[in-house]
Write a protein that binds this DNA or RNA. Structure first.
Length: 483
DNA sequence: ATCGGCTCGCGCAA
DNA sequence: TGCGCGAAGCCGAT
């Protein structure tokens, strides 16, 4: 326990008497109400808070609304009567991201910055390597405390660790992405959805609570930085512009919320029956906005639940939004090799090794796969569709990934290829969901053993015939294939 | 259209 | 120690 981050009740940065908040605490005085559940908060560095502003280093959760990390930063600032500043550190090269993903992110950030400025909170975009630049900014701003948002990916955890080594002010981490904080849902890597599901459901009542609405900042600086200029930033040297932005797509929190409204109004009621047909717009399509934190999963869950629609559909959607998404965070948080075949379950690894030398019916190069030039029109259509639209239907993602295992020389190549292509073309690349999905498809993670097959061993196989039985493959190929 | 067998191991009841 | 059952299947029999 770190003294500077601990309130009188032993709960970090508590306000008031610590009693459970009411359903709507928009009316309440932030100074006298514990706004953020203490289990959402993780102190990562102790020390005496300085007299300067509280800085929220925004990373995974790029929104001004419904953001527990920002809410906590504002609470800290209100308590100490200092301003809040939001910092975003733009890295010129991040895990294979291209102009497609940077464009979506930067246009969203511009909107977020404008919202923050309206609330009296300056948004600072800096560029460079976070372990160098974040401490430098904190020093220059005379920051008194640091707040940041939780991300289970190695590179993000590494940044935070190194930032903490270089600063002298207290710092804390908030899980603003998961409804049940990742470390609270489970203390270990879970074996499957069925093992984490009851743990999450037990805690939902506590954590799936309404967001407080805070008044504009009373202590606000007189000067605000310029809003970020996405078009200028996209031309920065070193930025991979090999994949263009997706036209006719609206990044940002407002567009994400509009898409959510449209989904609830027009498509949620059919979700239970339509979601696994790639020819129907049965899925929400929210994943790019969720991935970049432009909208909060918790906001989505609250709205879906309030919609009071077809029970099966609501249940099925919340299962995917909450249980399976948070299982992905659990996997990346507790499994260091979340993006390699060394992290898969024992039965899968034994089986996979036994079939390493199996003859592959087709072997394609990265280039052939990337250019969608295989013998399988469905696979080509899925790959081509992703390259053009930046997304791929959830059901086809499994098929697409499994075929990469079947058509490359070894599992290592398959993992590398699947991750590279997903991260390069998908708007939701580099997300724990993507890593967990690939681990499920290629490594049997969160799955069970199945009938032994060549190459796959006991890892679940999927076939073109199976797809034909489930949906109209030819229609999909007509829509997304290369003619 | 529908059913059963395939196959492993976690978590819980006992 | 035994037992139920699981992140989206496949295949062949009926």
């Amino acid at each position: 326990m770190i003294p500077a981050l601990t309130g009188p009740a032993g709960r970090p940065f508590q306000f008031g008497n610590g009693k459970k908040h009411d359903a709507d605490y928009g009316q309440q005085d932030p100074v006298n109400t514990p706004l953020v559940h203490p289990d959402r908060i993780r102190p990562v560095r102790g020390g005496q808070p300085g007299p300067g502003p509280v800085v929220y280093w925004m990373s995974r959760d790029q929104r001004a609304e419904d953001n527990w990390a920002l809410i906590h930063a504002r609470s800290l600032a209100a308590e100490r009567d200092v301003p809040v500043r939001v910092l975003f550190c733009l890295v010129p090269s991040f895990l294979g991201a291209t102009a497609r993903q940077y464009g979506f992110m930067l246009r969203g950030l511009k909107e977020t910055a404008a919202s923050l400025h309206r609330d009296g909170i300056p948004f600072h975009l800096i560029r460079g390597n976070p372990p160098d630049e974040v401490p430098r900014f904190l020093e220059k701003a005379g920051a008194g405390a640091l707040v940041t948002d939780f991300d289970p990916l190695r590179v993000k955890r590494d940044w935070l660790r190194r930032v903490c080594e270089r600063i002298t002010i207290p710092a804390c981490l908030i899980d603003a992405h998961n409804i049940v904080p990742c470390w609270k849902a489970s203390p270990k890597q879970e074996y499957g959805a069925y093992t984490i599901r009851p743990k999450i459901h037990r805690l939902l009542e506590t954590f799936l609570e309404p967001f407080p609405r805070l008044p504009p900042q009373s202590v606000a600086p007189s000067r605000f930085p310029d809003l970020p200029d996405p078009d200028a930033l996209l031309h920065a040297p070193g930025l991979d512009d090999s994949v263009p932005e997706v036209p006719n797509l609206r990044p940002g929190s407002a567009a994400g919320m509009a898409l959510l409204d449209e989904f609830i109004r027009d498509r949620l009621s059919g979700y239970a029956t339509d979601r696994n047909d790639p020819n129907r717009p049965g899925q929400s399509g929210l994943s790019p906005w969720l991935h970049l934190g432009q909208i909060a999963p918790q906001r989505v869950a609250l709205e879906i639940r309030a919609a009071d629609q077809d029970d099966d559909s609501v249940r099925a959607f919340l299962e995917e939004l909450i249980v399976r998404r948070e299982l992905s965070d659990n996997y990346c948080y507790y499994q260091p090799a979340y993006d390699a075949p060394t992290g898969i379950p024992d039965w899968a690894r034994r089986s996979s090794e036994a079939h390493r030398g199996d003859r592959r019916p087709f072997v394609y190069s990265l280039r052939e796969l990337e250019e969608a030039r295989t013998h399988d029109p469905l696979w080509n259509a899925a790959q081509n569709g992703m390259a053009v639209t930046g997304k791929m239907h959830g059901y086809l993602r499994m098929y697409w990934a499994k075929k990469i295992l079947e058509w490359t020389p070894d599992p290592e190549t398959a993992w590398r290829t699947a991750i590279l292509l997903n991260d390069k073309y998908s708007l939701d690349g580099r997300d724990p969901n993507g890593y967990a999905g690939i681990a499920w498809s290629l490594g049997g993670v969160h799955d069970r053993a199945w009938n032994t097959r060549p190459v796959f061993g006991k890892i679940r196989y999927m076939s073109l015939g199976g797809c034909r039985r489930k949906f109209d493959v030819d229609q999909y190929v007509r829509t997304y294939g290369i003619s």
